[in-house]
Design a protein around this nucleic acid. Structure first.
Length: 526
RNA sequence: GGCCCCAUCGUCUAGUUAGGUCUAGGACAUCGGAUUUUCAUUCCGGUAACAGGGGUUCAAAUCCCCUUGGGGUCACCA
């Protein structure tokens, strides 16, 4: 039988990074078995703007290159793929259950149910449904329905039973039905609830493997019972551990971003993100974009391959060695049996290291595209890129070399794109290397002269010139180079100094040197 | 609190299904050292873990039980 897996997000307006990993596992299992991966939208709840709510989710799939065989936009033989459009199926299943007596209309008011729950809790007893409505005769029920009395439909839990599932990841898990309240499967208006709609659809879509996060484990007995009541073949289950927040075992959650901000394990990611996003004019502290969301990584300039690699290694491993896997590798090698049982915290450090690796593998034209797009968004270059700018960006990327882990890292070398007067100065280091040392200013002034006299402003001759200069002045390279770098780039460190000078060009270097010297003089005076 | 799940270096993990080859392997991070005009890279090296207690066994990280700890879930949400 063909393997069919599904990912069934509720349209919430963003794609959760943990959900993305669950989706990835589903996708991988389907692809590994030459099966199908289905996207179904669980929008049984009343929905707001679908475009807005679903857009970011589909966008995340497209960005990472995870395609779906059936679902929104592509359709398929079992459509529609929005639960809000599948009502007739639920109605039919509900009628079936009601007729066979496997479900019943419950006329108990929510308040009554609530009171019973509380009473049970007070007495430290397990709450199970009162089933008062079950004592009603068929006529009485009909009468109440006719009178328009409000009710919900509950599944009749076979209290003497046990549900035993054989989970691909967790093994045998047992649930005692005598401890379970009868779950509501449909509201008064007949609209289905999650567990019910899910079961009807999983069966209708012929899903063979339900791969989902562990938090759904407690829903599973209800769904098994529902499948049985409906006469379905139950799918196989695989409850994968959820993605925890860095350094913890807690499920990552959008609501806890403020807490994450102060977590030491998260620090690095936030620092990187804040810095890059602010250049893009995005307020990263507003929390509508955070590391919980897939979109965050795209905005900061992460590579899909790196994100995918990091995600797949969270709770899954191929062996005791393999860390680097392309999507094609994963597809070939992924199996459910090698998914681990315990929750795994996202590791920003490791994510970044995967980025470095995949960035180093990226063809240069793709690097160029990524950086170009960043620079445009930050308005550091024009939207219409002329050949000269393009060539410059190529050079800067070469200079950046492995400092470029995510596209946003290109801003570390922004000195090539900002106007001389907009160059920001690293004040602390400027003080230390230019203002404070007594010999720095005279050296820089002499050096300015030497540079202005030289004709050949390319890296190699400049290197020789600088070395000779230092030797002639009987000073160490360390007394000259950092000061020069500070003046022309505003930074204490960066790419190769001589390449930097060459690329900046003589005019620019002299101008910035003058500016730096002036700045230092004024600061010395005061 | 009930039910359910989980437990190996700081982190992600290998090893647990078929107990010995594990004086517990790898990666990331970290700390040294070499290379380098800075930073980064690269290369070498180091620190660092079987939650605790009982069993079973000639032998347990691996099997069983208990304890502890962590987590998930308990809706007319999904």
């Amino acid at each position: 039988m063909t393997v069919r897996t599904r990912f069934a997000p509720s349209p919430t307006g963003y794609m959760h990074i943990g959900g993305m990993r669950t989706a990835l596992f589903n996708w991988l299992w389907a692809r590994h078995n030459n099966g199908q991966f289905i996207l179904r939208i669980d929008d049984t709840d009343q929905q707001r703007n679908m475009e807005e709510a679903l857009g970011p989710i589909l966008e995340a799939f497209r960005w990472l290159g995870l395609d779906w065989d059936e679902g929104p936009e592509v359709g398929g033989p079992h459509g529609p793929y929005f639960q809000s459009q599948r009502r007739p199926l639920y109605d039919a299943a509900l009628a079936d259950l009601l007729q066979s007596g496997k479900a019943y209309r419950d006329f108990e008011t929510p308040a009554e149910t609530q009171a019973q729950r509380e009473a049970a809790e007070r007495e430290k007893k397990v709450y199970v449904s009162s089933r008062g409505s079950l004592r009603l005769s068929t006529e009485e029920v009909a009468e109440k329905v006719a009178k328009g009395e409000s009710f919900v439909v509950r599944l009749l839990i076979p209290r003497g039973d046990k549900v035993v599932i054989n989970d691909h990841i967790r093994g045998t898990v047992e649930f005692d039905c005598s401890l379970m309240p009868d779950p509501v499967i449909a509201r008064n208006d007949g609209s289905p609830l999650y567990n019910f709609a899910t079961v009807v659809d999983d069966a209708a879509l012929e899903i063979t493997h339900v791969i989902r996060a562990e938090e759904h484990l407690s829903n599973t007995p209800i769904q098994v019972l529902l499948h049985r009541a409906l006469g379905n073949k139950t799918p196989e289950w695989a409850h994968v551990p959820y993605v925890a927040s860095p350094g913890s075992k807690e499920k990552m959650s959008k609501r806890k971003i403020d807490k994450y901000r102060s977590s030491p394990q998260f620090q690095k990611l936030f620092e990187l993100g804040d810095q890059i996003l602010s250049r893009l004019g995005i307020d990263s502290t507003a929390n509508d974009l955070s590391p919980v969301m897939v979109a965050y990584y795209r905005q900061v300039g992460f590579l899909p391959a790196g994100v995918l690699n990091a995600l797949v290694r969270l709770g899954w491993s191929l062996d005791d060695q393999t860390e680097i896997l392309s999507l094609a590798d994963m597809k070939r090698k992924f199996t459910l049996e090698r998914v681990i049982k315990s929750a795994a915290g996202l590791d920003p450090d490791k994510m970044l290291s995967f980025q470095s690796h995949w960035m180093s593998q990226l063809p240069s034209h793709e690097k160029l595209q990524g950086c170009l797009s960043m620079l445009k968004q930050a308005r550091l270059i024009d939207d219409e890129v002329d050949a000269e700018t393009r060539a410059k960006v190529v050079r800067v990327i070469e200079l950046a070399a492995d400092r470029l882990r995510v596209f946003g890292d290109i801003f570390q070398l922004d000195e090539f794109f900002v106007a001389d007067e907009d160059l920001k100065m690293d004040d602390r280091n400027f003080q230390k290397r230019v203002v404070k040392p007594d010999n720095a200013l005279p050296l820089l002034q002499d050096l300015r002269q030497r540079l202005s006299d030289t004709e050949n402003f390319s890296a190699l001759p400049l290197h020789d010139l600088l070395q000779e200069f230092a030797a002639a002045k009987k000073v160490k390279a360390g007394d000259v180079f950092p000061a020069l770098r500070l003046c022309v780039t505003g930074k204490a460190q960066g790419a190769d100094l001589f390449q930097t000078l060459e690329l900046l060009g003589k005019t620019c270097v002299l101008r910035r040197l003058d500016r730096g010297i002036g700045l230092a003089e004024s600061q010395r005076d005061t």
